[in-house]
Design a protein around this nucleic acid. Structure first.
Lengths: 214, 214
DNA sequence: GTCTATAATGAGATAGAC
DNA sequence: GTCTATCTCATTATAGAC
């Protein structure tokens, strides 16, 4: 086996561990299963990491770091905010959930692992903060394109979107009822679009009442 | 140790296992931890169950069987459907989530265990079917008391409620932000109450304009 | 029926040669 | 740096006395 830097080796191990977790769950990710997947010896594992726990902490941090809401951002927002929300949720659902159920299941398992593991509970919170921050950005872009503004703080709207996405995903993982999930998306699009209100036009001074930080 | 029937002993083991899982998670529920909690010997465990897997399957089935949405049904629905929804969600959130976070976490873990374990995947679906059935009953009672009817099939409304409850619970478990959760509940009450429409009075013929299938 | 004792397996981690 | 071989411990499960 070719020599490689410690950083690369650690990354290679984390990637192999993620593949094992996707296939067999967190409990199936034993050191032996991981090194078999990575094609290396058990000793190499313990050369790169002092313990399995250390590796798992790095894995969770890596996932939290790299997880983006890619499916959402693939969408271009149009002028109709309801359609934009519906299409974005549908894209998330079809691309991130239905097309790859294992991935979302792994996200939930890792969140619970983080909540259960002393010292990394904060990573569960960070995972959600990142989701919400990503969704907030999309909601602001969507509002701009549609010429509306949100009647609630955008962070609150983002939390609603993430709440619905989580519930939608869990429910579908349980019963795989895609048609029912689409009806949930229609309801969500109806409800969320009611939080939009016409934005002041550009010809008016928009920062009169609420100064914005540059 | 007093002798007891096999059924009682199995039940006692399952109860002890649930306590261990609440404290340490599914992975912490080793046979040793369980028998220590139950105050019996390892051999007694294997007299009652042939294997740990068999016990876990019975445990999941027991939870699915006995899980009710108790917090919801503690509520009496008033005449205002929005208030009823808000109070019910708040009661669920405060009584079942905040007051006992471990319980809901265990529910999620057991669902994932079921999804991962060959032969009991159907229990995850049953778990959700039971939630939705219980919520459906409450929604029908609430509609009757408020003099409204749901503009969607009540099963669809129930799915929406469960979707939001799941998302609400997961989000709170991650960041413990109770104030933000309450804002989600307000939004849910607004959105769900829009699915209510005035029920025909008993003196009018209710199927004149919109024929319903019996 | 319940116990003590132990077999059998698989886990994480380490020693030491190369 | 990487390997083989091994250690130590915890796990599930079973055997056999009472």
């Amino acid at each position: 086996m070719a020599r490689m830097s410690s950083v690369d080796r650690r990354h290679e191990i984390v990637q192999a561990a993620l593949r094992v977790i996707a296939a067999d769950g967190v409990s199936g990710a034993t050191t032996r299963a991981i090194v078999a997947e990575a094609g290396m010896s058990l000793a190499s594992f313990h050369y790169a990491f002092t313990s399995r726990d250390e590796m798992m902490r790095e894995l969770v941090a890596y996932v939290v770091e790299s997880e983006t809401v890619a499916a959402f951002s693939a969408l271009r927002f149009g002028t109709d905010i309801r359609t934009s929300i519906r299409d974005s949720l549908t894209a998330y659902f079809e691309l991130a959930v239905v097309a790859d159920p294992g991935h979302e299941q792994v996200m939930f398992e890792l969140m619970q692992y983080a909540l259960r593991t002393p010292g990394i509970e904060h990573l569960a919170r960070e995972q959600y903060d990142r989701y919400r921050a990503a969704v907030s950005g999309l909601l602001e872009t969507g509002a701009e394109n549609a010429g509306i503004r949100w009647s609630l703080p955008v962070e609150d709207v983002a939390r609603l979107v993430v709440t619905i996405s989580d519930g939608l995903t869990l429910g579908w993982l349980a019963d795989r009822d895609t048609a029912a999930a689409m009806r949930v998306i229609e309801f969500a699009a109806d409800s969320l679009s009611r939080l939009a209100e016409p934005a002041p036009t550009n010809s008016t001074v928009r920062t009169t009442t609420k100064e914005r930080s540059a």
